[in-house]
Design a protein around this nucleic acid. Structure first.
Lengths: 195, 195
DNA sequence: GAGGTCATGTAACAGGTTACATGATTGA
DNA sequence: TCAATCATGTAACCTGTTACATGACCTC
């Protein structure tokens, strides 16, 4: 049900094609709501049928035709009412953590490598977030933007995305140190100790 | 597909009924994999059919009968192989953030109230996590446990859950200050300023 | 000429959500 | 007596995932 509103909220930025939305979801919305392009196309179909978005066909030369979608007044109002309703609690789905949970009965070396990949991933995400942040701020400094900017919503969700990835980094580094501390112990036990 | 392994990983703690698992998911596993009781019952059915868990019926007096589930050797091996495979990236689903994203076109007062509720929720989760942490540590201090404890996996995922909720708290407080700064500005503009 | 981007879509299946149902026991 | 706890389950529906298909362009 919330994918619907995530799409409507994304369309607050302006007219977009399904393809555009897929990219927007990939770089920013995915921090709080993940969706595949297929989900988006299906959802846009429904939103158009229900009159919450307006679609117009744009013919292109040398490119396939595309459909551009805009929030309709009904859609905007539906979205506004949604913001007033009480949200459901966060539902996390992190496969890495399932592997970490089972680490001791599994393959600790492989899980260690997965954690390292997560750290690299977080670095990449943070770099992209910094570009999104600069774009949102435009030529304002942060304080001015937060006091007077027209739309702080996207900035607030971005801040949450940034702190999430920073925590991934901190947690990951700590987890690696902990795991290394354990193999070190095993090594000392095996070889007779070097403390 | 990962719910399967989240259940198997939870059964590493020992034999449990569907009802027990629902509680375990509620207090700890839900940080990285949320599931309703109905999902768990269905999954346990499948895991039993596939021989990854063993079920035994326990007749009770004054209580409905229950089925207790244990990891089978096959299940344990399947879980170990799972830990070695590369995890999919995290998929976030946070309805509050959808509302925050649309805040400027919605009901900022209501969204502010949702953020306050999220803060309260985070306080509650943190309190419960501290109890889980004390339980995991037993009578060891943290360093010793991390070096020599038999199962650090659940402790590592717990640390991630704790830092997630602490970030919710920090983000929420900051978001409230930002929103208040904006209504204050509007008030000054309306009434002629008090700076 | 191989792989990436633009741009959309179908179909089949797997997984998640919600509502409902049962029924005894225990504690406020 | 009301609500919560223990304990499981069915059915219907809605969402999410994966594989596949099309086809022209652009860059290496």
């Amino acid at each position: 049900m919330s994918l619907k509103y995530a799409v409507l909220a994304a369309l607050l930025e302006g007219e977009a094609s399904g393809y555009d939305l897929a990219k927007i979801f990939d770089v920013s919305v995915s921090n709080f709501w993940a969706a595949t392009p297929q989900q988006l196309y299906r959802e846009l179909e429904r939103l158009t049928d229900d009159g919450l978005v307006q679609a117009r066909l744009v013919a292109q030369e040398r490119r396939p035709n595309k459909r551009m979608f805009t929030l309709s007044p009904t859609g905007r109002q539906d979205l506004a009412e949604f913001t007033a309703r009480q949200p459901k609690p966060t539902a996390a789905r992190d496969e890495l953590m399932v592997k970490v949970q089972a680490l001791d009965a599994g393959d600790p070396t492989a899980v260690r490598a997965h954690i390292e990949e997560r750290i690299q991933w977080a670095h990449g995400k943070l770099a992209r977030y910094e570009r999104v942040r600069a774009h949102l701020l435009g030529d304002l400094d942060e304080d001015t933007f937060l006091r007077e900017g027209e739309r702080v919503g996207p900035y607030l969700t971005l801040l949450r995305g940034i702190s999430f990835e920073e925590e991934n980094l901190r947690w990951g580094e700590r987890a690696l140190r902990i795991l290394d501390g354990r193999t070190a112990t095993t090594d000392r036990e095996r070889h007779g100790g070097t403390a």
